[in-house]
């Protein structure tokens, strides 16, 4: 007689989200663009939005995000993602439309389109990757570059007398009445990654509820252009970016504030 002991059962705790395509990404090892992709995809899965979502990718390292997400997607011109997303959302008000933009794309060349989308209260979600640098073009100064930070186009460190101070996008957009949700999060460790995910979820919920423009600014790393290992780069985010870019909720719709508090109390 043969008896077989069935293994103690196990449950699946985490797996790659369906909203991510199977494709292997071109991102450098340890680049948090990948993390941000994963978080957005997890949220789309959890809110069951994959089939009803349209992504507008931007120009920057994330230029191919349109094929990394398994959703309908467009690739906008540099800086124009919010304008393109406006065109799409106005035609499909019942679909979820989000842009995925870097800091050169959103805060430099595309600032006007971003601001005006917020001013119109365009009911779209913006995932904003702040890595303090132009990644794709090889590490030039961005509007988000820290004071004194050396880049390939500020070799002596960013001189704020000549180039101004870093732009605070989450705070700036929070001041606009059309903005419903504007927060800054970081992805430098697991705890913060989870907080970032929560914010992304809230941002999409804001859009689902038709409350207006939502943006999640994500402090992100660029190990390649910062010339660091991926783990050093995350420490650099913590030690150097966090003091300049305080994490926080700069604007949260009242309806969502109360539910959040209600849960916590």
């Amino acid at each position: 007689m043969v008896t077989q002991l069935v293994e103690p059962t196990e449950k699946l705790v985490y797996q790659r989200p369906d909203s991510l395509a199977e494709l292997y990404t071109h991102y450098c090892p340890g680049c948090t663009h990948g993390t941000a992709h994963r978080l957005v995809a997890e949220v789309l899965d959890e809110l069951r939005l994959q089939n009803d979502t349209i992504l507008v990718a931007s120009v920057g390292c994330s230029v191919f995000s349109y094929k990394y997400f398994d959703v309908d997607a467009a690739e906008a011109a540099h800086g124009r993602a919010c304008a393109m997303a406006t065109g799409i959302k106005r035609v499909h008000p019942d679909k979820i439309v989000f842009t995925y933009q870097g800091d050169g794309d959103l805060a430099s060349i595309g600032l006007a389109e971003t601001m005006h989308a917020a001013i119109r209260g365009e009911n779209i979600t913006v995932i904003f990757i702040n890595n303090a640098i132009y990644g794709m073009t090889g590490g030039q100064m961005a509007p988000t570059t820290l004071p004194g930070q050396e880049t390939t186009s500020s070799p002596f460190g960013r001189d704020v007398r000549l180039t101004g101070n870093p732009i605070h996008v989450a705070e700036l957009l929070a001041a606009i009445p059309g903005t419903a949700y504007s927060v800054r999060r970081s992805m430098h460790d697991a705890r913060h990654v989870l907080q970032a995910k929560k914010a992304i979820q809230t941002a999409f919920t804001v859009q689902q509820q038709g409350l207006g423009f939502s943006i999640v600014e994500l402090l992100s790393s660029c190990p390649t252009n910062w010339k660091m290992t991926p783990n050093e780069a995350l420490s650099w985010v913590r030690d150097n970016m966090l003091p300049v870019y305080p994490l926080g909720d700069y604007k949260v719709p009242e309806s969502l504030q109360s539910t959040k508090r209600g849960k916590r109390d």
Partner: peptide
């Protein structure tokens, strides 16, 4: 859909978006 855009740059990219949306 009618929208007065913030610039011609935005206008053409909105057209691009709307046309992409079918």
């Amino acid at each position: 859909v009618f929208l007065q855009s913030e610039s011609e740059v935005a206008a053409i990219n909105m057209v691009y978006g709307a046309a992409s949306a079918g």
